[in-house]
């Protein structure tokens, strides 16, 4: 305990120096990445928050589109990947400027409530029902997706649901409803995670699940799951872009949101969407369909899409 009079302070200069150098080096990270970006709009108005579904991130489409958008417009798009339900909720709270979602009924409700300014069709792919090759519920020859769900429930075969209010979850719930079934019991599991994780869980449990084709393809041969039901009109998966109504919150970056909406519908962007995934999977993950130009939606559904909210 002869502490007090002991030695002059010998701060651990060497260590402090090394720590400071590591820290200083780490400060360079944003400088390096910022140098790659240009800044046309003023700093405060540059950030555009996009709330979108996990499928656009898990499939890698956002990684292809975001740099293009930032480069062309000078905005800094911040994509936040959540389920469609959560994305619409962020829009309703004014925490996002623009949304890319695939939950048509919920989107229409969002527009009807006056939360959105403009809603336009961007692209589509389809949902598929996947399951183990052994197909214990025998759904591969089911005449419809609803019939397939009925067989899964009758067989009480393992089924993994997203359970997260996402667009995929909404579609799955719609199928159960059409089948007149309230799913529950030991065979029905809610993962509460994104599409990629849910597919991994279904894979591990030899279970069935409903997935968008893009995420399924992007996981590729990682999965032992087979596509068992496809092509049913009820499995159509249409993505819409929605700008959040700037009237409700003065914090909304309306110009930035509008720029992203315009960007998605541009012919050049549509071409990128149509080619995305071909190099890796041999087929595109999404079919571009700006403003329903491809006629994927019945015209009654397409017309209100371009109409501003009442």
């Amino acid at each position: 305990m002869s502490t007090i009079t002991r030695r002059a302070p010998t701060p651990h200069a060497g260590f402090v120096l090394v720590a400071a150098m590591i820290w200083a080096a780490s400060l360079l990270a944003p400088v390096v990445s910022a140098a790659a970006q240009q800044a046309t709009p003023t700093a405060g108005a540059r950030d555009v928050i996009l709330a979108t579904t996990t499928s656009t991130q898990d499939s890698g489409l956002l990684d292809a589109l975001v740099p293009l958008f930032n480069e062309q417009t000078g905005y800094a798009l911040k994509p936040i990947a959540v389920g469609s339900g959560a994305a619409l909720d962020l829009g309703e709270r004014g925490e996002a400027d623009v949304l890319l979602a695939h939950s048509p009924a919920a989107e229409q409700a969002f527009m009807d409530a006056g939360f959105g300014a403009e809603r336009r069709t961007v692209m589509y792919n389809d949902f598929v029902v996947v399951g183990p090759e052994a197909d214990p519920a025998g759904i591969a020859d089911a005449p419809s997706a609803v019939e397939a769900m009925t067989r899964i429930a009758d067989a009480e075969a393992a089924f993994v649901s997203r359970g997260d209010d996402s667009g995929t979850h909404q579609l799955e719930l719609g199928l159960w409803e059409d089948a007149g079934i309230t799913p529950g019991g030991g065979w029905y599991v809610e993962s509460g995670t994104g599409m990629g994780d849910t597919l991994n869980i279904a894979n591990a449990r030899d279970g069935y699940t409903v997935t968008d084709r893009g995420t399924y393809l992007s996981l590729g041969d990682r999965l032992d799951l087979e596509v068992l039901v496809e092509g049913d009109p009820s499995l159509l998966n249409v993505y819409h872009v929605i700008t959040v109504d700037p009237e409700r919150y003065d914090t909304i970056n309306a110009a930035g949101g509008q720029a992203f909406l315009d960007f998605l519908l541009e012919p050049a962007t549509q071409e990128v969407i149509g080619e995305f995934g071909v190099d890796r999977f041999g087929e595109p993950l999404f079919t571009p369909c700006a403003d329903n130009a491809c006629g994927v939606l019945p015209s009654t559904q397409a017309t209100p899409a371009a109409t501003p909210a009442a």
């Binding site: 911040k78 994509p79 936040i80 995670t193 990629g196 994780d197 992007s218 590729g220």
Partner: peptide
């Protein structure tokens, strides 16, 4: 952080994303 590529993606959040993508 939002796990935004090039801005707020750190080692842990990148790992979560890659698992979701099946890139084990």
């Amino acid at each position: 952080g939002g796990n935004i590529k090039g801005e707020t993606r750190v080692l842990t959040t990148a790992t979560v994303l890659e698992v979701g993508r099946g890139n084990f």
